[in-house]
Simulated assay, not measured.
Amino acid sequence: MRNIFVDGYNVINSWPNLKKTKNYSFEAARQQLVEILVNYAAFKGYRVFIVFDAQLVLGSLEKDEKASNNVNVIFTKEGETADAYIERTVNNIGRKNEVFVVTSDKLEQQLVFQRGAVRMPSMEFYNEVKSIKNSISVKITEKYSDKKHTLEDRINKNILDKLEKIRRNN
């Protein structure tokens, strides 16, 4: 299974829709990113780790919250950047598993590449996620547009004939 580590604030500051949201609420932008990536991970079958810096939050401890079966949201501990967390984690698993790191930070991209991960710029990931979102919409439209909405469309022809016969005899 592909593991994708996302530098949360880097992505929020890169994606146009999240950039607008963060201007009035960082919490709303974080939540929007999580919701987008929960759908993406479920559709693709990937494990996604969204890492947010808490390095400047006094007394913060590392938190790992499960947003869904495939998505974990990590807040780093005080004094630790998202980059440092991702580097440490990728260093431990990078060569054993398929790992992608999403960030536009060039130095971070170099470091994780040396540890066996594939690097992906935030905007490239944005385009991939947007494409998957469109695929999900198409699948939903296909599934529900063929749905039968009338009773006649849902009932077997033989049963429908019998019901019609009963109706006419009354």
Rank of each mutant, 00 (worst) to 15 (best):
K157V: 11
E128H: 13
G59K: 05
E62G: 00
N97D: 15
N3W: 12
K63I: 13
L58F: 12
A29S: 12
R47S: 15
L33Q: 02
P16I: 09
E142T: 08
S60Y: 03
N134M: 11
K133N: 08
N10Q: 07
N39W: 14
A28H: 09
R2G: 03
K157C: 06
L61W: 07
T81Q: 07
N23K: 15
I12F: 09
K133I: 04
R2M: 13
N158G: 08
V11D: 02
N169S: 14
V34S: 06
D153Y: 03
N169H: 11
Q31C: 13
Y9G: 03
D161I: 14
I159P: 06
Y24R: 11
N156K: 12
V48Q: 02
K22W: 12
F43C: 06
F43R: 05
R47L: 13
T76R: 02
V38A: 05
V34F: 05
D153Q: 15
E87M: 01
L107R: 15
V99N: 01
N134A: 12
N39Y: 12
K165T: 14
K139R: 13
L37A: 09
Q32Y: 10
M1K: 07
A67P: 06
N10I: 04
N72C: 09
G116A: 04
Q55E: 07
A84G: 06
N156D: 15
N17A: 11
V102L: 03
D64Y: 07
Y126I: 00
A42R: 08
D64V: 10
Y40T: 04
V57W: 09
L18K: 04
Y144R: 02
K106N: 12
A29V: 08
K77A: 11
V90A: 02
N97L: 14
V73P: 00
V102D: 01
Y9W: 08
M120K: 03
Y85I: 03
S131W: 05
M1D: 08
N134R: 15
K147L: 15
V112L: 01
L107I: 14
I136H: 01
Q110K: 12
E87P: 03
K66Q: 15
Q55F: 09
F75K: 04
E128G: 03
V34T: 14
I4D: 00
E142V: 07
V118C: 09
P121L: 05
I166V: 15
I132W: 01
R47Q: 13
D7K: 06
I166G: 08
T81V: 09
E78Q: 08
S60A: 13
H149I: 14
E62W: 01
I159Q: 10
F100N: 06
V6E: 00
K139N: 14
R115T: 01
P121K: 03
N92E: 13
R88N: 03
R88I: 00
G59T: 06
K143S: 10
T81K: 07
K19R: 15
G94D: 03
K165C: 14
L33D: 02
V73I: 10
T103L: 01
N169C: 10
V6C: 02
I159G: 07
R154H: 10
D146T: 13
Y126R: 03
E152D: 13
T150A: 04
D7F: 04
E142S: 11
F5G: 00
E98Q: 15
N92T: 15
E124F: 05
V112D: 01
I140N: 07
A54G: 11
V38R: 04
D105I: 01
G94F: 03
Q110N: 13
K133L: 13
Q114D: 11
S137W: 09
A84R: 05
